[in-house]
Design a protein around this nucleic acid. Sequence first.
DNA 1: CTATCACGTAACTTGATAAGTATCGTGATG
DNA 2: CATCACGATACTTATCAAGTTACGTGATAG
Lengths: 155, 155
Amino acid sequence: MDRRVRTDSRLSRTLHVLLHMARHDGPMTSEAIGRMLGTNPVVVRRTMAGLRTAGYVKSEKGHGGGWTIAADLNAVSLLDVHRAVGGPRIFAIGSDRANPACAVEQVVNAAVEDTLREAEALLVARLGSVSLAQLARSFDARCRTEGPSDAATCA
Amino acid sequence: MDRRVRTDSRLSRTLHVLLHMARHDGPMTSEAIGRMLGTNPVVVRRTMAGLRTAGYVKSEKGHGGGWTIAADLNAVSLLDVHRAVGGPRIFAIGSDRANPACAVEQVVNAAVEDTLREAEALLVARLGSVSLAQLARSFDARCRTEGPSDAATCA
DNA sequence: CTATCACGTAACTTGATAAGTATCGTGATG
DNA sequence: CATCACGATACTTATCAAGTTACGTGATAG
Protein backbone atom coordinates (compact mmCIF):
# COMPACT_ATOMS: atom_id res chain seq x y z
CA MET A 1 0.00 0.00 0.00
CA ASP A 2 1.35 3.35 -0.99
CA ARG A 3 0.92 5.60 2.01
CA ARG A 4 1.28 9.24 1.25
CA VAL A 5 0.02 10.16 4.69
CA ARG A 6 1.45 12.21 7.48
CA THR A 7 3.33 9.86 9.71
CA ASP A 8 6.18 10.46 12.09
CA SER A 9 8.92 8.34 10.57
CA ARG A 10 11.66 9.21 13.01
CA LEU A 11 11.72 5.78 14.59
CA SER A 12 11.98 3.78 11.38
CA ARG A 13 14.43 6.17 9.79
CA THR A 14 16.64 6.12 12.86
CA LEU A 15 16.62 2.34 13.01
CA HIS A 16 17.55 2.27 9.36
CA VAL A 17 20.50 4.53 10.03
CA LEU A 18 21.65 2.63 13.09
CA LEU A 19 21.70 -0.67 11.27
CA HIS A 20 23.79 0.82 8.50
CA MET A 21 26.15 2.32 11.03
CA ALA A 22 26.54 -1.07 12.65
CA ARG A 23 27.69 -2.52 9.33
CA HIS A 24 29.99 0.38 8.62
CA ASP A 25 33.55 0.99 9.75
CA GLY A 26 34.33 4.49 10.97
CA PRO A 27 32.07 7.49 11.37
CA MET A 28 29.27 8.33 8.96
CA THR A 29 28.62 11.95 8.10
CA SER A 30 25.19 13.54 8.32
CA GLU A 31 25.44 14.22 4.65
CA ALA A 32 25.98 10.57 3.75
CA ILE A 33 23.15 9.54 6.07
CA GLY A 34 20.92 12.19 4.57
CA ARG A 35 21.58 10.75 1.12
CA MET A 36 20.58 7.32 2.38
CA LEU A 37 17.33 8.63 3.79
CA GLY A 38 16.54 10.94 0.92
CA THR A 39 16.73 14.00 3.11
CA ASN A 40 19.30 16.60 4.12
CA PRO A 41 21.95 16.73 6.84
CA VAL A 42 20.10 19.10 9.13
CA VAL A 43 17.16 16.76 9.51
CA VAL A 44 19.60 13.96 10.28
CA ARG A 45 21.42 15.94 12.93
CA ARG A 46 18.15 17.02 14.47
CA THR A 47 16.99 13.46 14.90
CA MET A 48 20.36 12.05 15.92
CA ALA A 49 20.70 14.68 18.64
CA GLY A 50 18.30 12.70 20.83
CA LEU A 51 20.30 9.53 20.33
CA ARG A 52 23.46 11.29 21.34
CA THR A 53 21.83 12.63 24.49
CA ALA A 54 20.77 9.10 25.32
CA GLY A 55 24.34 7.93 24.75
CA TYR A 56 23.54 5.57 21.90
CA VAL A 57 25.76 7.40 19.41
CA LYS A 58 28.47 10.01 19.50
CA SER A 59 29.48 12.65 17.00
CA GLU A 60 32.83 14.13 16.03
CA LYS A 61 33.54 17.30 14.17
CA GLY A 62 36.12 18.07 11.55
CA HIS A 63 37.91 15.92 8.99
CA GLY A 64 37.03 12.28 9.34
CA GLY A 65 34.22 13.20 11.71
CA GLY A 66 30.63 12.02 11.76
CA TRP A 67 28.43 9.68 13.73
CA THR A 68 29.49 6.50 15.48
CA ILE A 69 27.58 3.97 17.54
CA ALA A 70 28.48 4.32 21.21
CA ALA A 71 26.45 1.58 22.85
CA ASP A 72 26.03 -2.16 22.90
CA LEU A 73 23.39 -2.98 20.32
CA ASN A 74 22.15 -5.75 22.59
CA ALA A 75 21.35 -3.21 25.27
CA VAL A 76 19.26 -0.84 23.14
CA SER A 77 15.68 -1.74 22.27
CA LEU A 78 13.47 -0.27 19.59
CA LEU A 79 11.52 1.35 22.40
CA ASP A 80 14.68 3.04 23.63
CA VAL A 81 15.20 4.46 20.17
CA HIS A 82 11.59 5.57 19.92
CA ARG A 83 11.97 7.46 23.17
CA ALA A 84 15.38 8.84 22.30
CA VAL A 85 14.11 10.46 19.13
CA GLY A 86 11.43 12.13 21.24
CA GLY A 87 8.52 10.51 19.47
CA PRO A 88 5.91 10.36 22.16
CA ARG A 89 2.74 10.65 20.11
CA ILE A 90 1.74 7.19 18.96
CA PHE A 91 -1.92 7.63 18.10
CA ALA A 92 -3.56 9.96 15.65
CA ILE A 93 -6.94 9.47 17.32
CA GLY A 94 -8.15 10.23 20.79
CA SER A 95 -10.37 12.55 22.73
CA ASP A 96 -9.64 16.23 22.93
CA ARG A 97 -11.09 17.23 26.27
CA ALA A 98 -9.39 15.79 29.31
CA ASN A 99 -11.93 16.46 32.06
CA PRO A 100 -15.31 17.17 30.53
CA ALA A 101 -18.18 18.23 32.73
CA CYS A 102 -20.55 15.88 30.97
CA ALA A 103 -20.69 12.42 32.52
CA VAL A 104 -21.57 10.81 29.22
CA GLU A 105 -18.47 12.27 27.69
CA GLN A 106 -16.42 11.06 30.62
CA VAL A 107 -17.60 7.50 30.09
CA VAL A 108 -16.99 7.65 26.37
CA ASN A 109 -13.53 9.12 26.75
CA ALA A 110 -12.61 6.56 29.35
CA ALA A 111 -13.70 3.74 27.08
CA VAL A 112 -11.79 5.04 24.09
CA GLU A 113 -8.71 5.89 26.07
CA ASP A 114 -8.63 2.60 27.90
CA THR A 115 -8.58 0.86 24.56
CA LEU A 116 -5.84 3.10 23.27
CA ARG A 117 -3.84 2.52 26.41
CA GLU A 118 -4.10 -1.22 25.91
CA ALA A 119 -2.85 -0.95 22.36
CA GLU A 120 -0.07 1.34 23.46
CA ALA A 121 0.96 -1.10 26.16
CA LEU A 122 1.20 -3.85 23.58
CA LEU A 123 3.23 -1.62 21.32
CA VAL A 124 5.58 -0.62 24.10
CA ALA A 125 6.04 -4.23 25.15
CA ARG A 126 6.82 -5.33 21.61
CA LEU A 127 9.20 -2.49 20.89
CA GLY A 128 10.88 -3.00 24.21
CA SER A 129 11.45 -6.68 23.57
CA VAL A 130 13.47 -6.25 20.40
CA SER A 131 17.07 -5.05 20.52
CA LEU A 132 18.97 -3.41 17.73
CA ALA A 133 21.24 -6.45 17.69
CA GLN A 134 18.27 -8.73 17.09
CA LEU A 135 17.08 -6.52 14.28
CA ALA A 136 20.53 -6.63 12.72
CA ARG A 137 20.55 -10.41 12.99
CA SER A 138 17.17 -10.67 11.33
CA PHE A 139 18.62 -8.69 8.46
CA ASP A 140 21.56 -11.06 8.17
CA ALA A 141 19.20 -13.99 8.24
CA ARG A 142 17.16 -12.54 5.47
CA CYS A 143 20.25 -12.01 3.35
CA ARG A 144 21.28 -15.62 3.73
CA THR A 145 17.94 -16.85 2.44
CA GLU A 146 17.40 -14.30 -0.27
CA GLY A 147 20.83 -13.85 -1.76
CA PRO A 148 23.91 -11.68 -1.45
CA SER A 149 23.89 -8.69 0.84
CA ASP A 150 24.66 -6.13 -1.83
CA ALA A 151 21.19 -4.72 -1.36
CA ALA A 152 22.31 -3.20 1.93
CA THR A 153 23.33 -0.11 0.01
CA CYS A 154 20.70 2.55 -0.36
CA ALA A 155 19.60 3.98 -3.65
CA MET B 1 -2.97 14.79 31.62
CA ASP B 2 -3.83 17.84 29.65
CA ARG B 3 -3.24 17.04 26.04
CA ARG B 4 -3.24 20.00 23.77
CA VAL B 5 -2.08 17.91 20.85
CA ARG B 6 -3.44 17.26 17.45
CA THR B 7 -5.71 14.25 17.73
CA ASP B 8 -8.58 13.11 15.58
CA SER B 9 -11.47 13.19 18.03
CA ARG B 10 -14.21 12.20 15.63
CA LEU B 11 -14.73 8.81 17.20
CA SER B 12 -15.05 9.99 20.78
CA ARG B 13 -17.16 12.99 19.86
CA THR B 14 -19.50 10.88 17.80
CA LEU B 15 -19.91 8.33 20.56
CA HIS B 16 -20.67 11.14 22.94
CA VAL B 17 -23.37 12.42 20.63
CA LEU B 18 -24.87 9.01 20.00
CA LEU B 19 -25.21 8.25 23.69
CA HIS B 20 -26.97 11.54 24.25
CA MET B 21 -29.27 10.85 21.34
CA ALA B 22 -30.12 7.49 22.83
CA ARG B 23 -31.27 9.19 26.02
CA HIS B 24 -33.20 11.85 24.19
CA ASP B 25 -36.72 11.77 22.79
CA GLY B 26 -37.14 13.18 19.30
CA PRO B 27 -34.59 14.55 16.89
CA MET B 28 -31.60 16.61 17.97
CA THR B 29 -30.52 19.50 15.82
CA SER B 30 -26.96 20.00 14.63
CA GLU B 31 -26.95 23.25 16.49
CA ALA B 32 -27.85 21.64 19.82
CA ILE B 33 -25.26 18.93 19.25
CA GLY B 34 -22.68 21.52 18.33
CA ARG B 35 -23.32 23.30 21.60
CA MET B 36 -22.79 20.03 23.46
CA LEU B 37 -19.47 19.46 21.73
CA GLY B 38 -18.31 23.03 21.89
CA THR B 39 -18.25 23.35 18.14
CA ASN B 40 -20.56 24.51 15.40
CA PRO B 41 -23.30 22.84 13.38
CA VAL B 42 -21.30 22.46 10.19
CA VAL B 43 -18.68 20.32 11.87
CA VAL B 44 -21.45 18.20 13.36
CA ARG B 45 -23.17 17.67 10.03
CA ARG B 46 -19.87 16.82 8.38
CA THR B 47 -19.13 14.08 10.87
CA MET B 48 -22.69 12.79 11.08
CA ALA B 49 -22.84 12.44 7.31
CA GLY B 50 -20.81 9.26 7.52
CA LEU B 51 -23.10 7.82 10.15
CA ARG B 52 -26.09 8.52 7.98
CA THR B 53 -24.47 6.81 5.00
CA ALA B 54 -23.86 3.80 7.21
CA GLY B 55 -27.51 3.86 8.26
CA TYR B 56 -26.85 4.42 11.96
CA VAL B 57 -28.72 7.72 12.07
CA LYS B 58 -31.13 9.61 9.89
CA SER B 59 -31.72 13.30 9.45
CA GLU B 60 -34.85 15.32 8.78
CA LYS B 61 -35.15 18.85 7.55
CA GLY B 62 -37.47 21.62 8.56
CA HIS B 63 -39.38 22.35 11.73
CA GLY B 64 -38.86 19.67 14.32
CA GLY B 65 -36.12 18.17 12.23
CA GLY B 66 -32.68 17.00 13.25
CA TRP B 67 -30.83 13.76 13.87
CA THR B 68 -32.33 10.50 15.09
CA ILE B 69 -30.82 7.11 15.79
CA ALA B 70 -31.86 4.68 13.07
CA ALA B 71 -30.22 1.45 14.18
CA ASP B 72 -30.24 -1.04 17.00
CA LEU B 73 -27.59 0.10 19.45
CA ASN B 74 -26.79 -3.53 20.14
CA ALA B 75 -25.83 -4.01 16.52
CA VAL B 76 -23.40 -1.12 16.23
CA SER B 77 -19.89 -1.42 17.66
CA LEU B 78 -17.42 1.31 18.43
CA LEU B 79 -15.43 0.01 15.47
CA ASP B 80 -18.45 0.52 13.22
CA VAL B 81 -18.63 4.12 14.38
CA HIS B 82 -14.90 4.60 13.88
CA ARG B 83 -15.22 3.43 10.32
CA ALA B 84 -18.40 5.34 9.65
CA VAL B 85 -16.82 8.64 10.56
CA GLY B 86 -14.07 7.85 8.08
CA GLY B 87 -11.29 7.79 10.65
CA PRO B 88 -8.82 5.42 9.11
CA ARG B 89 -5.54 6.80 10.42
CA ILE B 90 -4.90 5.30 13.82
CA PHE B 91 -1.18 5.83 14.26
CA ALA B 92 0.86 8.98 14.19
CA ILE B 93 4.06 7.01 13.64
CA GLY B 94 5.15 4.72 10.84
CA SER B 95 7.50 4.47 7.94
CA ASP B 96 7.18 6.74 5.00
CA ARG B 97 8.56 4.71 2.11
CA ALA B 98 6.52 1.68 1.15
CA ASN B 99 8.98 -0.25 -1.01
CA PRO B 100 12.49 0.99 -0.40
CA ALA B 101 15.34 -0.32 -2.51
CA CYS B 102 17.52 -0.78 0.53
CA ALA B 103 17.19 -4.19 2.15
CA VAL B 104 18.07 -2.82 5.57
CA GLU B 105 15.25 -0.36 5.30
CA GLN B 106 12.91 -3.14 4.22
CA VAL B 107 13.72 -5.15 7.32
CA VAL B 108 13.33 -2.16 9.60
CA ASN B 109 10.05 -1.11 8.05
CA ALA B 110 8.71 -4.62 8.26
CA ALA B 111 9.60 -4.84 11.93
CA VAL B 112 8.00 -1.53 12.81
CA GLU B 113 4.94 -2.10 10.71
CA ASP B 114 4.38 -5.61 12.00
CA THR B 115 4.33 -4.20 15.49
CA LEU B 116 1.93 -1.46 14.50
CA ARG B 117 -0.28 -3.99 12.79
CA GLU B 118 -0.43 -6.04 15.95
CA ALA B 119 -1.44 -3.06 18.01
CA GLU B 120 -3.99 -2.08 15.40
CA ALA B 121 -5.44 -5.58 15.42
CA LEU B 122 -5.85 -5.39 19.18
CA LEU B 123 -7.48 -2.00 18.87
CA VAL B 124 -9.85 -3.20 16.18
CA ALA B 125 -10.76 -6.26 18.19
CA ARG B 126 -11.48 -4.21 21.29
CA LEU B 127 -13.49 -1.56 19.50
CA GLY B 128 -15.37 -4.23 17.60
CA SER B 129 -16.30 -6.06 20.78
CA VAL B 130 -18.12 -3.16 22.42
CA SER B 131 -21.55 -2.08 21.23
CA LEU B 132 -23.13 1.30 21.70
CA ALA B 133 -25.72 -0.37 23.91
CA GLN B 134 -23.00 -1.71 26.18
CA LEU B 135 -21.44 1.70 26.42
CA ALA B 136 -24.79 3.21 27.32
CA ARG B 137 -25.27 0.55 30.00
CA SER B 138 -21.86 1.30 31.46
CA PHE B 139 -22.92 4.90 31.76
CA ASP B 140 -26.10 3.93 33.59
CA ALA B 141 -24.10 1.72 35.91
CA ARG B 142 -21.77 4.54 36.71
CA CYS B 143 -24.68 6.83 37.50
CA ARG B 144 -26.16 4.32 39.91
CA THR B 145 -22.94 4.15 41.88
CA GLU B 146 -21.96 7.78 41.75
CA GLY B 147 -25.24 9.57 42.17
CA PRO B 148 -28.06 11.07 40.13
CA SER B 149 -27.82 11.28 36.38
CA ASP B 150 -28.13 15.03 36.16
CA ALA B 151 -24.54 15.19 34.96
CA ALA B 152 -25.65 13.79 31.63
CA THR B 153 -26.20 17.35 30.49
CA CYS B 154 -23.30 19.07 28.87
CA ALA B 155 -21.93 22.37 29.99
C1' DC C 1 48.12 29.77 10.44
C1' DT C 2 44.60 29.02 7.35
C1' DA C 3 41.37 26.41 4.65
C1' DT C 4 38.21 22.88 4.84
C1' DC C 5 35.33 19.72 6.92
C1' DA C 6 31.52 18.28 9.80
C1' DC C 7 28.59 19.04 13.56
C1' DG C 8 25.40 22.53 16.49
C1' DT C 9 21.77 25.62 16.45
C1' DA C 10 18.35 28.84 15.30
C1' DA C 11 14.84 30.50 12.30
C1' DC C 12 11.89 30.03 8.65
C1' DT C 13 9.06 27.48 4.99
C1' DT C 14 6.32 23.55 3.37
C1' DG C 15 2.81 20.05 3.36
C1' DA C 16 -0.86 17.49 5.21
C1' DT C 17 -5.11 17.17 7.90
C1' DA C 18 -8.74 17.86 11.49
C1' DA C 19 -11.27 21.50 12.92
C1' DG C 20 -13.49 25.93 12.53
C1' DT C 21 -16.13 29.36 9.72
C1' DA C 22 -19.02 31.66 6.21
C1' DT C 23 -22.41 31.29 2.79
C1' DC C 24 -25.98 29.74 -0.04
C1' DG C 25 -29.18 26.18 -1.60
C1' DT C 26 -33.06 22.89 -0.60
C1' DG C 27 -36.79 20.75 1.40
C1' DA C 28 -40.18 20.38 5.24
C1' DT C 29 -43.21 22.35 8.65
C1' DG C 30 -46.65 25.52 10.40
C1' DC D 1 -44.72 31.99 2.51
C1' DA D 2 -41.71 32.56 6.42
C1' DT D 3 -38.87 29.91 9.17
C1' DC D 4 -36.31 26.08 10.39
C1' DA D 5 -32.78 22.61 9.78
C1' DC D 6 -30.02 19.94 6.87
C1' DG D 7 -26.72 19.68 2.46
C1' DA D 8 -22.80 21.20 0.31
C1' DT D 9 -19.00 24.03 -1.06
C1' DA D 10 -15.22 26.86 -0.18
C1' DC D 11 -12.17 29.02 2.68
C1' DT D 12 -9.38 29.76 7.00
C1' DT D 13 -6.92 28.16 11.17
C1' DA D 14 -3.95 25.30 14.03
C1' DT D 15 -0.56 21.86 14.58
C1' DC D 16 3.54 19.26 13.74
C1' DA D 17 7.02 16.57 11.15
C1' DA D 18 9.88 17.50 7.62
C1' DG D 19 12.47 20.39 4.68
C1' DT D 20 15.47 24.47 4.02
C1' DT D 21 18.66 28.33 4.79
C1' DA D 22 22.17 30.38 7.26
C1' DC D 23 25.70 31.00 10.47
C1' DG D 24 28.60 29.54 14.36
C1' DT D 25 32.13 26.27 16.46
C1' DG D 26 35.57 23.01 16.86
C1' DA D 27 38.83 19.64 14.68
C1' DT D 28 41.96 18.11 11.15
C1' DA D 29 45.07 18.68 7.17
C1' DG D 30 48.67 20.92 4.86
